[in-house]
Design a protein around this nucleic acid. Structure first.
Lengths: 354, 354
DNA sequence: ATAGATTGTGCAACCGTTTGCGCAAAATTT
DNA sequence: AAATTTTGCGCAAACGGTTGCACAATCTAT
């Protein structure tokens, strides 16, 4: 049907003016008389003219495209982060183009390169778990495309980074539990290749030190595949009959832990208290609602996008390291312990390995 | 730093050939000798040449951009749908560009228009709840951009649509519960402006008819804001002391219902059985795992993207109406009732309005 | 040796816009 | 009335590639 798209030339012809004039008329350029503008607009309308941004942006040096690369689309955090990013990206007349690295460094490298082909104006990057260094970002630097790293990052002095204060959050959570009389806390952490994990764990450790609470290595679980969580949990319960509280580093770990506890018949918070770092959604539909250090994905997304756009528009290449503070949200999953806990030994689900 | 980007011209100059030859060499055109290709590639490498897709696609008629417009990024379904879409989009060398209409028809219209400006090769659209007709898609039709509607749609004979068989899923769920002796089932449904809601409800009704089970209007909850769910649930429990099962139409309704039941001290499935239409994630971390009709977001995304790409590449404008079948996943949330249920009246949470 | 086919390359137009500069006509100042 | 400024518009060159066609050089068939 289409019959090729209407262009400026078509309008120019119809209205008897040059393309240049038509272009300026449509752009509301002051050189063009009001009368002409009106006529041009009318014809453009009549012909249902659609501007071709591809051509426009070819001439201009930018593309108004911002790329986001995430390792995967899980149901936690990423969606709300995207919501936040999208909000400010759209508000500033950019478009967001989303890629998924599937936690593969090879893919990530490929995608970063692809961003240069598309001449993205900026790149937002959540590192894959395989990413151990940032050499593959050099190409962006070479062609002056600003990048900001968010959420999952590694240490760098070269790129702007936005995360929560992971260590502090870990410390605060453990501290909170300790202050409520819990002296044997199980910490559930994620993939140790990610800074997010090591830092939160570091804070968790520090809280114990600061309060002079001894902590055994078997109190920290490092979970790379959630399927292994159950077994690890069994072992931990067996090793620590005096366990009274659990801290999970993320929402994903939280919901799975919560489920396993329920299945095991553990009452929260009567038998075991539960606390997490979370963006606040999961805690609201778990029972009881779980006390957490809130870490809003939307906020992270919004701030990140703002900063990136600032870098794009002011050509700033100052490197920043931004830590967003978490806020404590007290709900019903943490009990206060008095002196000696009187916890009974609970039967395990019996799936422990022989 | 950058010093403007290296172009074909630069390479041509350096290697002493014309741009045309360089272009063809890089594209591995058969006309070019192997020797020349090698030389050109070498120089391109040395100069770290980056192709400009914007320029390339200006000449070509396509953009290899696929736009996705979703009403919002919730944590259910949308992320897995995007995962699926992304998979096939990337596998076919397209890029996915994501927009959010915030459930506003005005935004949706604006975004659709924007897609034409960007010359997207195709559009994937999940309708906003405000969308009552499809006139705003005419513009896409005019310029021959294929669209496929998915998940949340309205009736149309003009556009290709991919959904699950909503009515059948509603029927199957209710039927399953009835077959297990439940005669008073509470159905929890979403925004009635969406076809997804009306159809699922229709099936729910039909199952009752087919089994000759009477059903009162107060057995169906229509929830537009989840905050109102609690109150509605209270009312339903009060009105139907013989209530033995609940069906929720979506994951979001499921998790909130589950939470409210837990809080109320209702045991699942001993007191009340629970069943849902779900993409299977939430049921796995709720306790007990909830029986559901599975509706894989990934599958929907993949199939949709495939179809759209097919339309793009074969210029097909055949309209299709595809229904994906759900599959029953039996977990632990549904009990079988014998003759007369012996349910005790449970105290409500007491938050009912006076 | 000559005609015909093949191989490898360059010319130049084109994709749809934007924009610096030039220029005539109209408006304003002297 | 002449000199100057302002107004409104067009020319043509970008932007960075792709591609139809022509053409010279080399190769193959007679």
């Amino acid at each position: 049907m289409a019959g090729n798209r209407v262009t400026l030339k078509d309008i120019a012809q119809k209205v008897g003016l040059s393309m240049a004039t038509v272009s300026r008329a449509l752009a509301d350029h002051p050189d063009i008389s009001g009368e002409t503008k009106a006529r041009v607009r009318e014809v453009a309308q009549a012909l249902s003219y659609i501007p071709n941004y591809r051509a426009r942006y070819l001439r201009a040096k930018h593309s108004r495209l911002i790329a986001l690369i995430v390792p995967e689309m899980n149901m936690f955090f990423v969606p709300s982060m995207i919501t936040g990013i999208n909000r400010v990206v759209q508000a500033n007349d950019y478009s967001l183009i989303v890629f998924q690295s599937d936690n593969s460094i090879v893919q990530e490298r490929r995608l970063v390169e692809y961003c240069t082909h598309l001449s993205a104006d900026g790149v937002l990057l959540v590192l894959s778990s395989e990413t151990a260094n940032l050499q593959h970002l050099d190409i962006l630097h070479e062609v002056d495309i600003p990048v900001v790293l968010l959420d999952k990052t590694i240490d760098t002095v070269k790129y702007t980074t936005i995360t929560i204060d992971d260590e502090e959050a870990g410390r605060e959570a453990a501290s909170y539990l300790i202050a409520r009389g819990h002296t044997r806390i199980l910490g559930i952490f994620g993939d140790q290749r990610q800074r997010i994990s090591t830092q939160r764990l570091k804070g968790f450790r520090r809280a114990h030190n600061e309060h002079g609470i001894p902590m055994e290595e078997s109190q920290v679980l490092r979970v790379t595949i959630v399927n292994e969580l159950e077994e690890q949990l069994d072992r931990a319960f067996a090793a620590h009959p005096d366990l009274t509280a659990i801290f999970t580093m993320t929402d994903e770990l939280l919901v799975h832990t919560h489920h396993l506890l329920s299945r095991r018949g553990v009452r929260i918070p009567e038998d075991v208290s539960l606390m997490a770092i979370s963006d606040g959604q999961a805690p609201s539909f778990l029972h009881p609602n779980v006390t957490h250090l809130r870490h809003s994905g939307i906020e992270v997304g919004e701030r990140t996008a703002h900063i990136l756009i600032g870098m794009i528009e002011h050509n700033s290449d100052a490197m920043m390291d931004i830590r967003i503070r978490t806020t404590l949200v007290e709900l019903g999953s943490v009990a206060t312990r008095t002196a000696t806990p009187k916890r009974r030994a609970k039967p395990s689900t019996g799936k422990r390995t022989a």
